[in-house]
Design a protein around this nucleic acid. Structure first.
Lengths: 197, 197
DNA sequence: TTTATTTCTTACCATAGATCAATGTAGGGT
DNA sequence: ACCCTACATTGATCTATGGTAAGAAATAAA
């Protein structure tokens, strides 16, 4: 089962139905249960994961052992330590499942296969990378210059769906604050009669 | 004068001397004086700048009008709002010169030209993008989980050269703290007999 | 040189967010 | 129903960093 991935290949990587047919056999899915790891610190990340269903997180540990969530990935997102994949280096990060999930693991062979089959795959991939960079830049700008409340408001506007599916302490971790602080931020907003959704 | 850029084309974008010859005419340089802007908020960024000489900064303004420096770029670095270039969107950022500088502006035509000439240009560019993403991820992880002092120590280890060429308040802006705080952090380190360099 | 201008430091106080501890609440399993 | 575990809230206090203001030091300008 990988309908989402098929659609993704068409919409984002510019494959035709016919090209898709050629790949059908090579596409496997992988079941992941809540809490399972797809990547641990120190390992070399060899795969990019497409999220067919469920919700994953990409995070690191700081020196005090606290988790810092860099990215959430729900349906139709990619998640990976691209640096580790590309440079064959041990990763500093973890990937695990927040909900039971189904992912499509994409390895370099598969990438080569696609780029052989589909002429504009490389361009589409480049577009993804640029988009990724754009998001990271925005995130950095917010971390540098915006208060916890502003970052929270930005987050729920950008990822309202994720917001509803992850525990609050993970949102806090993504925002770079403690769960207690996030709770107070929310309280503050509620007092100013702010209505999420 | 663009020796650095020529070497860069060979070392990082895999061009041969011969291929380089074909491009020679199309490569122009641009003088920039301290304080001059290469990009302002609201403009669509159409160029990627290679820094032949000098030092630039890439930064944004938060709602209070405070500058948040996302990146410094000294000799042999690229600087640009890639998101704006790629998606033809108005940029949220500024690029200006911290020192008098010489840059090589790279437009999309030039990119197309290179990718026509050099077979492995696309791969090399992809490598750059991945490297960029890797840096941004590390930066985010630090902003989420490390103290001002840790971030500062990381910065001077990673960019000792930049450290010596920019005013301290810009380093502070890069770290996401005030100049006063950075001054105190440095004092604290000095008291613990920390010796930079 | 003298005078401006910018940058850096220091001292004092303010505040956002952290930490610790207690309580509340909801869902799952038995 | 009960207990258990995970999560969220709240209060009290603490700490890192921010804000302000003043002065020192460096740099540029006159």
């Amino acid at each position: 089962m990988h309908h989402n991935f098929d659609r993704y290949l068409k919409d984002n990587w510019g494959l035709t139905d016919q090209e898709l047919g050629q790949l059908a056999d090579t596409i496997k899915t992988r079941q992941v249960r809540k809490g399972d790891f797809l990547l641990k610190e120190g390992e070399i990340c060899t795969l990019v994961f497409f999220v067919e269903k469920g919700l994953l997180r990409f995070y690191g540990l700081n020196e005090d052992g606290k988790e810092n969530i860099l990215q959430f990935a729900s349906e139709n997102w990619l998640v990976s330590d691209r640096g580790s994949v590309y440079f064959n280096e041990p990763s500093h990060f973890f990937i695990d499942a927040i909900e039971d999930a189904v992912v499509v693991p994409i390895d370099n062979d598969f990438m080569d296969l696609i780029s052989g089959i589909s002429p504009n795959f490389r361009k589409c991939n480049e577009r993804l990378l640029h988009n990724h960079i754009r998001h990271l830049n925005r995130r950095i700008a917010l971390l540098l210059g915006a208060s916890a409340e502003k970052r929270y408001l930005h987050f729920i506007k950008l990822y309202p769906d994720v917001m509803l599916r992850v525990p609050q302490w993970m949102v806090a971790s993504y925002l770079g604050i403690t769960p207690e602080s996030l709770s107070r931020v929310r309280r503050g907003l509620a007092d100013k009669n702010f209505k999420p959704l």
